[in-house]
Design a protein around this nucleic acid. Sequence first.
DNA 1: TTGCCTGTTGGTCGCACACTCAATAGCATT
DNA 2: AATGCTATTGAGTGTGCGACCAACAGGCAA
Lengths: 214, 214
Amino acid sequence: MSSSVPNKRIRKSPAARRAEIVAAAAAVALSEGLECITLRRIAEELDVRPGLISHYFPAVEDLVAEAFGEAAGSELDGLLPADRGDATPTQHLARFFARTSGEAYDDISRLWLNARHLSRYRPALRDRVAVQEAAWRNRFEALVRDGVELGEFRTEDPLLAAIQILVVLDGLGMLVNSVDTDDDPPAVRRMPATTAERELGLPAGTLTAAANSN
Amino acid sequence: MSSSVPNKRIRKSPAARRAEIVAAAAAVALSEGLECITLRRIAEELDVRPGLISHYFPAVEDLVAEAFGEAAGSELDGLLPADRGDATPTQHLARFFARTSGEAYDDISRLWLNARHLSRYRPALRDRVAVQEAAWRNRFEALVRDGVELGEFRTEDPLLAAIQILVVLDGLGMLVNSVDTDDDPPAVRRMPATTAERELGLPAGTLTAAANSN
DNA sequence: TTGCCTGTTGGTCGCACACTCAATAGCATT
DNA sequence: AATGCTATTGAGTGTGCGACCAACAGGCAA
């Protein structure tokens, strides 16, 4: 490996080092879980000494919260880009459900499940979860509102619709660590899209129809 | 306290001691969380030495799984008794939603959230979660089927309806550790009942109408 | 090239955890 | 009252964690 011989120290600017630490922690959070964010684990990841992590994050809990925020935030951008480009709200939404149905979304489901549980014991994380939850809801609400204005969706309360859809998505996410997550009925796995179609006044199947263009 | 002076040992039958240990662990799981089930914690609870817990559960993970099963199982019996008595399925269901709406249900929500996350790392727990999940689904399905036969409910697939309702309930349960769990719209908190009414062909409000008899 | 600021190290402390096992002492049986 | 089975203890092992801090050295400024 790269460190079989005592490694030369590399000195970086505080901002760069801090960003690097948060990025490494976010990666660990997504792939292994928030409780795997330890001083030793992240230090090893970056090939530095644990003390250095402590230097930037005197309390590990703050790093955990930061890592969650980073991971959840960038996943949101991947799933529901703030800028729709030239896609219609319906296309955008359909793409969202396509992405959240794949196995690639399992890591994000696990992350949220993880964070929501760990929030019980870690106030800093609890606050971050609240922030990200608001961000997801607002991003979703904006999309709904957009669709309503364009006449594609029909609902009296865009935020309420958004929350309801996300709650159902969370409900399915609860099952992500189950032994047999993929042998319950298709109707169950289609629940988030079905909920969206109902709440937004769309014809059934609109959001799960196979691959809309790009 | 009762142990300020070296305590006299009390010798119990293996079955009794084991049951006592599981009960203590289940109580800790419900009130403080599954990760608080440690040899020391449970031993202190029962005023015995940690080694004794190890004797009955050579691997702590098995105690954790057992404790979850015990807690989830008896909560299910409290929420959806297998024997309905003389209540109609509708009354039974309404009572279920009344109970799952109160703060008393928060501990159960936390337990499920906890277990589903911890399942990621603990195979024994994962299996227990699967067993309990099946138990909850089946108990619920039996109630639905019962209601369908009596002409109170209308659905093509009782198990599917049961699963869908439980998924929504889980989705709300995800929020149990949030800062402001009770300031989202009433429509959100009524989601499980609303889902049930829709899936079972009941008039809106049937299941949330104030206090049915007993 | 030199000097200094500060990012980084290495070592250490105290704590909590699961797990092991020989020795002890309840208590049912006789 | 004596005996023997076995439930229970006490003591110890090793691991991993967060936190702390004096000493070191990279690399920019002079």
